[in-house]
Design a protein around this nucleic acid. Structure first.
Lengths: 283, 283
DNA sequence: CCAAAAGTGTTAGGGTTACACCCATGT
DNA sequence: ACATGGGTGTAACCCTAACACTTTTGG
């Protein structure tokens, strides 16, 4: 058995990947069930030890692919977690990343044995210090959503303003005036109306057929946290009990009423805004 | 000679510390001259290898103290840098931190052999990937200044609004209308007027006596970069050539005209603002 | 007294908030 | 028809940008 020796002790270096998803109503996180000790049977982020010929980012991407089948283009570093006793086996420094996945990317779940999407409000206690890492990732997400078009990563190619609003509300934990949100997001110019809508006759959130083994099920009491912004549930928005009108047992949300126009992100416009000066989705 | 063996190869883990300072006119960075290979003779951030019984943050603080004599309370993680060939000796993952130091903290330069403050516009080419790290740190600083009271860390206990404005302008690379800045910062409520001013008869920026071996010298053509904000040098602010009126060869700036009131930060007020909702120093 | 900087006031305009109102769709 | 959501208009309000003016200080 080969081994590697150093004059001074070296910690192991691993990566962890916090992947967020959005099913149209709730924010989700991707977790895997640990099959081995330590923390066997508990849930944790996908990740693993870094090889000597790859960067941390490469490692995170590789491990994510291996463990969940997801092949994500954009991942961002969250930071390094270096507590002395993070791992009972040996000293392990973990470099955490976070990313966003569209529902449509979540297919081909063959590799995804033991991987599961959890509603952000229902995640179980996690292995290692992953609870802590998750909190950091949530904070980071909430920060970033003000400056980056998170929708790009979480929504499908085509989406309605309402979809986008639900996303913002899920992430920030507030609710806005529908009409003001509408104009505000439109006047940024980063959205382009889709001329040839390709939507199903009936709109569902989280099409069962696309989920496969990575099922995104849901259903929970709508935990309405009000945040800082002037966005407490106002009279116009339906208040708590009826916020989700009809929900089926597979987590779909059935829409009634007028259908919204479909839009798509215009990356160029966004890039212009971002470099030239401000994007700032303030609410 | 003892050695440490592992079944799989482990990278070394080190930390680096980017420390910013402000002398009243320019932003500074603290660098040390490398005395050994690799990159002997080049400048780099203070830092070193992590021990097995300390977290990365502890390590950064310890190395900073050892190499520069600075004992900083607040340091924030910038991120991990894990390029495969960062260090020619072996694979080294570096966890970088950044921090802010007041001029008054920069004394007792006994330990600071080879440590020197550099104007942010004059830093030489750095060892390893520290140029890259510095760019990241600058970006981070510019981001953070909108949400955190950076002044806390960089200015003395007592300061004028003008001092604060110069700081913001240095970091962001823009200039604001003096009068609007004045009211805007005051109406946040995070500043409290000092009743018993303890200032010297004449105000200098960067008192020579406090510098000792860690000399903060300066003097350079005022590189006025205009940023995104509506803050290009306007008619009211003196434009380029005369921006610093009288400067002495030891880097002091001599003030004429009416003296400004002295203020101090009120941490409680800031904390309230921050948690309750917004702080957002927008300009 | 003069120049330079600090402190105060004011005004026009843009953006946000909080609604009213009408349109479209599915049951 | 009716309930439910989508899309448009608008007035009050707040904040900011821009700039005039007065006060204080050092020389």
């Amino acid at each position: 058995m080969e081994s590697y020796s150093y004059k001074y002790p070296h910690p192991a270096v691993a990566t962890d990947c916090v992947v967020f998803g959005f099913n149209g109503r709730e924010l989700k996180v991707l977790l895997i069930e640990r099959g081995i000790e330590p923390y066997k049977g508990m849930w944790a982020f996908p990740g693993g030890f870094m090889r000597m010929d790859e960067s941390a980012e490469d490692c995170a991407r590789r491990e994510l692919k291996e463990e969940t089948g997801l092949d994500l283009k954009y991942i961002k570093q969250l930071g390094a977690f270096s507590g002395v006793n993070r791992d009972p086996r040996e000293r392990v420094v973990s470099i955490a990343f976070y990313s966003l996945a569209r529902q449509s990317e979540v297919r081909g779940g063959d590799d995804a044995v033991g991987a599961k999407w959890w509603s952000i409000n229902e995640v179980p206690q996690l292995a290692f210090d992953h609870d802590f890492i998750l909190r950091q990732a949530m904070n980071r997400l909430r920060q970033d959503i003000h400056f980056e078009p998170i929708g790009f990563g979480l929504l499908e190619e085509q989406f309605t303003i309402a979809d986008l609003q639900r996303l913002y509300e899920s992430v920030l934990g507030v609710s806005f005036d529908r009409r003001n949100f509408y104009r505000k997001i439109l006047q940024t110019g980063i959205l382009q109306e889709v001329d040839t809508p390709s939507r199903p006759e009936k709109r569902y959130y989280g099409k069962r057929s696309e989920m496969m083994s990575m099922d995104i099920d849901a259903l929970f009491a709508p935990t309405m946290k009000k945040g800082r912004i002037k966005a407490e549930p106002n009279d116009d928005v339906l208040s708590e009990p009826s916020m989700l009108q009809e929900s089926f047992d597979d987590g779909r949300l059935h829409n009634v009423g007028r259908k919204g126009k479909l839009y798509r992100f215009v990356k160029e416009k966004y890039d212009n805004l971002k470099e030239g000066g401000k994007f700032h989705m303030e609410f």
